[in-house]
Every structure is written in structure tokens, then in C-alpha cells.
Design a protein around this nucleic acid. Structure first.
Lengths: 140, 140
DNA sequence: TGTATGATTGTATCATTGTACCAATTGTAT
DNA sequence: ATACAATTGGTACAATGATACAATCATACA
């Protein structure tokens, strides 16, 4: 469960946690039956209060993505049928793009700049068939 | 945080607070990561309304000097010199786009689909001038 | 087995943080 | 005096944190 929080984005921490876990489930990083970190351990990991994690877990529980059980822990639920996940995939993809735009605009990028960069990397992707790292790695 | 306000100077309180804090940061009295007083405690200290302090903090936040986080507090930010941040911005942006592509491809998106979605949302952005949610999102 | 006890889980509630919105006040120009 | 804009204050709200609690599990021991 390795992801970073952005305390400056204005997006509530519990929302960030919800989105991260949703993405991990859709990507298959988390499979049905897998146990999530306890509210306390994940909170310690992310340097936030465990109530904030508990809130995220509650939302995920209400969304039918996980199952939280007092005294036992929280677990990934089985995935909905393909047509549902496909719809979910589209929504998730759109939401991902939206999130990406927010992140980029926070870095001061203009729409054209984002499109240009994406176009470049997509071209590279189509040519080489692989998603290499563009000669640098992740910063904040 | 010991400074006096001049209620007769004609200079708005929130401006005085902004200038004082900027000065303290430049002098090194406040270092990156330091937590500022809460809006309410500083307001009590200075005998003004906490909204006035909140206004000062908001301006400092927009200026990139501090980071205000609802429910957590406000903290001094570290800001590298302009040329560094500009270089960093480009690298961050490229790496952000790359990460985005990775995420999207894990969701099974083809290059064209990603570009198309981004184009849509960028168009919407340019038309409305705001990055509101594309009325989708959140679970099944 | 059965039960007692402590550790570990999530839950409930309230305090503390900053935010949003609008009303009241103040200063200033007409 | 009046009107207007800027500043400040009041109130309600949202996000996060602190604390106490309840449910479950692990362990020891009779």
C-alpha cells in the first residue's frame, strides 16, 4: 500500500485514499479477499489520523468495494460482473483524466502544454510499443 | 509570533499580518515546516476576528509561502529559487504525464482513447474556464 | 472444552482545525 | 447626507484529530 498524499491539493485526504484504493482494485493490485491495512497502520503510514482512514473505508464499504468488520479488519469484496466493471472502467478512466488535469494545472501547466506532452509520450508509446520512463523519475 | 498591530495606520489588519509573516520567513524566524498559530489563536492573540487572520493566511497560501490545510493547520512552505522550480516543474509535469499514461494503460485504455478523453476535458476546461467534475465519478 | 484476559480490530462522539457566506462597520468620494 | 467599496465580524459548516468504546481474536490456564 504505497502511495503518497497531497496535503496541499485541497482534495480531502479521505477522498484521496478512496480514489487510490479504487484504482488499485480496478488495476488488480488488490484482489477479492485481500485484507487491507488496518485503519491504524495505514494512518501511521500516511501520517494522518486513523479516523480519516476509517472514513475512507466507510465510504468504500458503502460503495460495495470493501467489507469492514469491527474487530476483524477490512477486506476487498468480489468484483461486480464484467459489464458493470466495464462501465466502472470508463468512469474511472474519465475520473483519472480529470484528476490528471487537476494535478497538471496545479503545476501551472496550460491546456496546450499538457496535450502536447501527452501527445509526445503517446507517439513514443505507439512507436516503441512500451511505456519507458522519459529519462527522469518522480518528483513532487 | 510576537508582533504588534497598528490599528490607526490605515493599513488593513490582514495586510499587516501578511507583511509580518513574510518578513519573518525572509529573516528565517520561520522555517519550512514550522506550524503557524491557528487562525483562532492568533486572532485571540492580536485581538481581531479569526476571519481576518484566515484572510491573511489565504493570501500567503496563494503566494506559495504557506500551506493551509483544513483540519490540520497551516505550515511554512519551502520554496526553491525560481529557475530551480521552473526546471522542476517541467520534470514533474513530464513525469506526471508519464505516470498518468501508466495508470490509464493499466485500466486497459488505448492511446487514442486517452488522448480523446483528455482532449474532451481540455476543451471543456477552455470553454468554461474551470475544472469541474465531468458529472461522472464515484463507484458503480 | 470452557473461560478469563489482553491485544487488536473498527466505531462513536466530540474537540479543533480552516472555509464559505453574508451582515455589519468603516472610510471615502460624490 | 448618500452611496459605494473595502474591511471586519458572526454564524454555520467541512475536514481532521483525540479519546473512549465495543467487537473480535489470540493466548493461557483450569
Amino acid at each position: 500500500m504505497n502511495f503518497e498524499l497531497d496535503f496541499r491539493s485541497g482534495i480531502p485526504i479521505y477522498v484521496q485514499v478512496v480514489e487510490h484504493i479504487r484504482h488499485m482494485v480496478l488495476r488488480g493490485d488488490l484482489e477479492p479477499g485481500d485484507q487491507l491495512p488496518t485503519v491504524r497502520s495505514l494512518a501511521l503510514d500516511l501520517r494522518v489520523n486513523f479516523n480519516t482512514i476509517a472514513r475512507a473505508y466507510r465510504l468504500l464499504d458503502e460503495a460495495g468495494i470493501i467489507s469492514t468488520q469491527q474487530g476483524r479488519g477490512t477486506y476487498i469484496l468480489s468484483l461486480p460482473p464484467p459489464e458493470v466493471t466495464d462501465e466502472l472502467r470508463r468512469k474511472s478512466l474519465r475520473s483519472l483524466v480529470h484528476q490528471h488535469l487537476l494535478d497538471a494545472s496545479r503545476l501551472g501547466a496550460a491546456p496546450e502544454e499538457i496535450l502536447k506532452l501527452l501527445q509526445e509520450q503517446v507517439d513514443h508509446w505507439k512507436q516503441t510499443g512500451s511505456l519507458d520512463n522519459p529519462e527522469n523519475d518522480k518528483q513532487s
